[in-house]
Design a protein around this nucleic acid. Structure first.
Lengths: 370, 370
DNA sequence: CAGCGTTAGGCAAACGATTGCATGAAACGA
DNA sequence: TCGTTTCATGCAATCGTTTGCCTAACGCTG
């Protein structure tokens, strides 16, 4: 005997308008559910969300509620919930671009950790445009993200939400930075080359917009001088252009060869440019590692599958992503842990086929290019 | 004892509790703005959103509103707006995993097109787990996405929002599918190999979960028989395992070699597996392209930078992503264009260094592996 | 039996925008 | 001067939840 009339018309979905076409089968809300149960929305909400106040609600009622929710396929409206609780369960990720390589690897770590916590994320790419970075930061905040992760992205201002950068440098106060131990990384590579017997080492520095460039270079300088080696200016080239491709590395290497100063090994800024470099060497009739040794950086997927397989300094990108996500989550979580300043992770040298001792007294010079 | 009227304490931010720390400088809302202007929220909203009713509001007032909004740094609350307008300006993207390669390339196209339209997107990866796919689809809908893009992801059910798949097959009614012309793609590759003089061609098929596998294979069968070539069973291997790496291609090639049936060329399922294959050949003492020709598929970034540079069938992945995004946008846009069934894009053969005519009467056989 | 603590749940006010309808004044035509 | 538009703006409902506070009934104690 269905007595409680009240909002009865609502309780029967599909009544009212005769199968109205423009009304998509709007999903049931708390209201419908409550009406159907003869309870108030408040009670239903409390049960469903397991609010503390639900303690005083008898098990039998709770079961009724759960059963009805399942049966009517109730799905809470996250938008409404977000509005009310001022929690979007979303964090924002900024990166230079969505492409193979660095950022993507980190992103996969971020995603893994975030999923576990039922957080979603927005991705925006800024292609190294400072103005775009600023704008993205705002748009994300407008979207009510609860935290920000910036991958290889220089932030001008601190936001009002917890922020962590991956490979950021001189970040504003209060943002956590996840970074590689660049000194150790450089030492690893230089040591390897040095032990093989290389003395004339060429370098490819990163683009100026890349946050790692300076720290890495500093590490290299330290490592070189610690081993009594000199960095000769003609043997350093810088990546130019913001294409996330192998081209800049290729071009930089051609410049190195054109400079005519002999060298027996090259330490590239990353794997992608190392691969471009190898191609440039091949085109110049030089083979790797017989004529020149090459060491890359990052250890991207394909590094191991190059021909020759690339010797490289591995950066635990996936893990750095996970750490970043974990940090944000901690800072926005109930504990609201304060931001730590910095988390540094360790590189690892992966020796493969692109390095070997130099041919005695036979350093590569750029002659072929003149 | 200040037992202040509770509501009053809220109305003056910064009063009540002395410099309350837990009250972040809550951003100004329509309400504050309206109060400051001596107007009603309704009017302010109308002006700011350029609602049709704003036509009757005099320019001078509008200017006042805009000025105040700028000055007070008003930023609309997107969550509230979404709730009211039932528009989240967000679409959901499903893909197997965030990693280098296929899905990422497509994603970059999606992102580009969506940004232009001020849409954001959620990314979820399901690692080919059917159950996860289902769950993700729900979670995205719960998050009120207005559309769905599924990349290399088999959908069981049609959702209540416009959906487009990239490289989907047998999708439910009403979803738009963006796909490559696989018959043409196969023809391109086979033709190339055939014209070079190859007759014994080996194949690496895709994993069974990959949506492209069947269509591609069908295209290959057609192309082969059209040229009077036979597909010999011992010369086809299938990628196994769901690692998004080069390993499966490497392993498949070893199986091919182990089978001992001679062949002069290999057509791989994608570039990533082709690269794995090349390594397997090298390890077996065979060189590419002298001993075996290899053609890949997709034309990922690094294909051109392999050694040897990879001959491959280019799939316009970035553009497919853009098309996918454009389609969703059209279907959810004001015009609400109906879903088209299918959009097919054309492949392109990129000839590089990994293919050349076979050495006369000297097909590779797997002997070395026995 | 007055008093009080539980128990079981409802009321209604947020959250911050959008929007249909209403209104009061000015402008306009007859 | 009296309708009738048009203008300029305000009122209040709504979107779907969450949550602080309230109440009514019941059981117990002293």
């Amino acid at each position: 005997m269905p007595k409680s009339a009240k909002t009865a018309s609502r309780s029967l979905p599909g009544r009212g308008l005769p199968n109205s076409v423009d009304t998509p089968p709007r999903s049931v809300g708390l209201k419908t559910l409550a009406a159907h149960l003869g309870l108030s929305v408040a009670t239903v909400s409390r049960v469903l969300t397991g609010a503390p106040a639900a303690k005083s609600i008898p098990k039998v009622t709770q079961d009724r509620v759960f059963a009805a929710a399942a049966e009517m396929k109730y799905r809470p409206n996250v938008v409404a919930r977000s509005l009310r609780k001022r929690q979007s369960m979303t964090i924002g990720v900024m990166l230079p671009e969505v492409s193979e390589g660095y950022a993507t690897l980190v992103l996969s770590g971020v995603e893994e950790r975030l999923m576990e916590a039922d957080y979603f994320y927005f991705v925006v790419s800024h292609h190294h445009r400072a103005e775009t970075i600023e704008r993205c930061q705002h748009m994300l905040l407008d979207r009510a993200v609860e935290g920000l992760i910036a991958i290889d992205t220089p932030l001008k201002h601190r936001s009002s939400v917890p922020t962590v950068t991956v490979s950021g440098h001189h970040e504003p106060e209060g943002v956590t930075n996840i970074m590689l131990d660049h000194n150790r990384a450089a030492a690893l590579a230089i040591d390897h080359l040095h032990q093989l017997g290389h003395r004339e080492i060429a370098f490819i520095k990163g683009q100026e917009f890349s946050s790692d460039t300076d720290a890495r270079w500093e590490g290299i300088r330290l490592a070189m001088s610690a081993r009594g080696l000199r960095i000769v200016p003609q043997l350093v080239a810088r990546l130019e252009g913001d294409a996330p491709s192998h081209d800049p590395g290729y071009a930089a290497t051609r410049r190195l060869l054109a400079a005519g100063k002999p060298f027996t090994a090259l330490f590239a800024f990353n794997d992608v440019s190392a691969i471009g470099a190898i191609r440039a060497f091949r085109e110049a009739g030089l083979s790797v590692p017989e004529d020149v040794s090459v060491v890359g950086f990052d250890d991207v997927q394909s590094a191991a599958y190059q021909n020759p397989a690339l010797t490289t300094v591995r950066q635990p990108l996936h893990r750095m992503g996970m750490l970043a996500a974990a940090q944000v989550l901690e800072q926005i979580g109930p504990a609201r842990l304060p931001a730590v300043q910095q988390i540094v992770v360790s590189p690892e040298l992966v020796v493969r086929e692109s390095t070997r001792p130099p041919r005695a007294g036979n350093a590569v010079s750029g002659k072929p290019f003149r």
